[in-house]
């Protein structure tokens, strides 16, 4: 087939009016929000929220943890959107946003509690559970984000998938944080980060395979 024949063929594939894709990001966000809500309801029904979630001191520390995990959601979604195009740049520093917020949390904790007993705070008591649950909760939101990216044309499918992984890990960690009783920034730095790393790697691998175009 000559190029001219291909052009004839492409011109014939004319669906009439193509609606501009500008509403697609909003629809994608709605899908991901629905997936997040679903895992939130399922997880909190099965595992239950931590005791005293709404009371003063616990409310504050859960808020700090959520600041870190929601920073990952925001950074991941913005990056995924920027990386969903064949051309243009992305704000590379955004990858570090969750770590930056976590550092702030760590400094505050050090100011409050000092450094004694830091090993115990970092090790925690249910690290393996955390390491399993966060990736598990992240799967559905990750799938939603990958479906949204599939309709786009990312310059690097693996990188776009990794950004989707970061957002999904943030969603998974936010949901898990409502249940988890480990309140140290050191625990987050060690175990939440490791769990997020698993999801980011998963996103990159899946992206490379599924988002190729």
């Amino acid at each position: 087939m000559k190029t001219d024949d291909l052009i004839t063929l492409l011109a014939r594939d004319n669906p009439g009016v193509i609606v501009d894709d500008r509403t697609a990001p909003m629809r994608s966000l709605a899908t991901v929000a629905a997936a997040s809500l679903a895992v939130l309801v399922v997880f909190l029904t099965l595992a239950g929220p931590r005791a005293g979630l709404a009371t003063g001191a616990i409310f504050a520390v859960v808020g700090l943890k959520l600041a870190v995990t929601l920073a990952a959601v925001a950074a991941g979604i913005v990056l995924a959107r920027q990386l969903s195009r064949p051309v243009g740049s992305s704000a590379t520093l955004l990858w570090l946003l969750p770590a930056a917020v976590l550092s702030g949390f760590g400094l505050w904790e050090t100011a409050m509690l000092g450094t004694s007993g830091w090993q115990a705070r970092m090790t925690g008591t249910n690290a393996l559970y955390c390491l399993t649950m966060i990736p598990l909760i992240s799967l559905l939101p990750l799938a939603g984000l990958l479906v949204a990216l599939k309709a786009r044309a990312p310059a690097s499918p693996a990188l776009a998938g990794a950004a989707a992984g970061l957002a999904a890990a943030g969603i998974g960690a936010s949901v898990y944080a409502l249940h988890c009783t480990e309140d140290s920034a050191l625990f987050l730095a060690m175990w939440y980060s490791l769990a997020a790393g698993i999801v980011v790697a998963l996103g990159a691998l899946a992206g490379r395979r599924l988002l190729a175009w």
Binding site: L6, D21, R22, R85, A151, W213
Partner: peptide, 12 residues
């Protein structure tokens, strides 16, 4: 050309 065609809806 095929890619341009299939992805033309994503051009902003």
């Amino acid at each position: 050309l095929l890619a341009i065609h299939l992805k033309r809806a994503t051009w902003d």
